[in-house]
């Protein structure tokens, strides 16, 4: 007696490179919106960036609304 089985095979195959790219996007985006206090622009503008807080002010309202500590 033969037995026939119908199997539904669902594959999820994404590359490790794609995972790595998205992990970097995650970390960078989270830092920009949640934690930057002038750090990113300080690469170009030096100490003045910590006074201007350009990204901090731009993300200020979302930072509060999304639950991140702001100031």
């Amino acid at each position: 007696m033969s037995k026939v089985q119908q199997l539904s095979v669902s594959k999820t195959s994404v590359s490790k490179v794609a995972i790595l790219v998205l992990a970097i996007v995650f970390a960078a985006g989270l830092f920009v919106v949640g934690f930057d206090q002038g750090h990113i622009f300080s690469i170009v503008y030096g100490e003045q960036a910590f006074v201007d807080l350009t990204i901090h002010e731009l993300t200020h309202d979302m930072r509060h609304a999304a639950g991140f500590p702001c100031h």
Binding site: L22, F26, L30, V32, V33, G34, T59, D61, M62, R63
Partner: peptide
């Protein structure tokens, strides 16, 4: 920046 930051955070958390 509210919507722009929302998009950046959305891309991050979406990732």
């Amino acid at each position: 920046g509210q919507v722009l930051a929302g998009i950046i955070l959305g891309v991050a958390m979406g990732s």
